[in-house]
């Protein structure tokens, strides 16, 4: 029994952590501006493609792991400043439609630039292979992902909780008009906040390109679990996104062990239960969209 359940539990935790990082990026953007970023998966894919291109041109994987998400942030901020700013004061449906359209256009753009065919992206030699954990052999790269996610989330927590800018961001989520009235430039808050969310998407994109595969659809395939994670964890809560991600990862892994064909619906069943019992999500606040 243990030899079957332990690998699934361990794997589910890592998968959940991965979903959580994508979901936290989504949550950050949603919390401050009410934007449901349907193009989040496209930024994730872009991060993967940029890292692949950098590595193919001789850049070290370690450098690409940092540079590719930063380049993704530049593209993200350009999109945010040029297209999303005018929609911040409108109904969230407007930005939802815009980002949905952007995601369709981005998929076609990836196809035009990098082709329809998937691209081969290997981990660097030091992260290839596996480590024996006693109950199973586990890929080194997946363990590395845990470290990267922990560092990224720790850094984000420090930024939000221990810096003045983070304090302003949290205050803006509570009451944007008040913080604007107190003299804070909310446009910079919006921009940096969006950039943070996109950085996490770009980072997840590099990791996903190596762990899964790199094709124009990579990000969009990961977007739905991330949205479900946000709903389960509760809109407006970053802790909720983390908890939701881990719950979903565990649910998928354990259901796969016993009812493999139901693995895809497992997260939706979990979401339905959470919505029935606690409609705002596990850690969510009421009326996030006012």
């Amino acid at each position: 029994m243990f030899e079957h359940v332990a690998p699934e539990l361990f794997n589910g935790l890592i998968l959940g952590g991965f979903y959580a990082v994508v979901a936290i990026g989504l949550s950050l953007i949603m919390n401050l501006t009410g934007t449901v970023n349907m193009a989040h998966g496209s930024f994730l894919t872009l991060g993967g493609y940029l890292a692949f291109t950098l590595v193919a041109r001789g850049t070290s994987f370690w450098v690409a792991l940092l540079i590719a998400p930063l380049l993704t942030v530049i593209v993200g901020i350009a999109v945010e400043r040029s297209m999303m700013v005018p929609l911040y004061r409108r109904d969230p449906v407007y930005s939802l439609l815009l980002t949905f359209g952007l995601s369709l256009m981005a998929e076609e753009a990836f196809r035009l630039i990098w082709g329809s065919r998937g691209l081969p992206f290997s981990p660097p030699p030091e992260l290839a292979g596996g480590i024996t954990l006693g109950f199973m052999q586990f890929p080194t790269f997946r363990l590395f992902i845990v470290v990267v996610l922990a560092v990224a989330l720790g850094g984000l927590a420090l930024f939000l909780l221990r810096t003045r800018f983070g304090l302003r961001l949290r205050a803006a989520v509570q009451d944007t008009e008040m913080i604007a009235a107190l003299g804070t430039n909310t446009q910079i808050l919006y921009m940096v906040n969006f950039g943070l969310g996109i950085f996490l998407a770009g980072l997840a994109g590099v990791l996903a390109a190596v762990m899964f595969q790199l094709s124009p659809t990579t990000g969009n395939q990961l977007l739905m679990p991330a949205f479900v994670t946000v709903i389960v964890g509760g809109m407006g809560s970053l802790y909720g996104a983390l908890a939701g991600g881990i719950l979903i990862g565990l649910a998928i892994s354990l259901v796969t062990l016993y009812i493999p064909a139901a693995s895809e619906v497992a997260m939706y069943i979990l979401m339905a239960i959470v919505l029935l019992v606690r409609p705002r999500g596990l850690f969510g606040e009421e009326g996030i969209f006012g």
Binding site: H4, P7, E8, N11, G12, L15, M136, R142, F212, Q221, L222, I252, S253, T256, L257, P260, A261, S263, E264
Partner: peptide
């Protein structure tokens, strides 16, 4: 094991 079309993460299947 039956896997849904569009499965991204096969690890829960592969660990078995």
């Amino acid at each position: 094991d039956l896997t849904p079309l569009g499965t991204t993460d096969f690890s829960p299947y592969l660990t078995k």
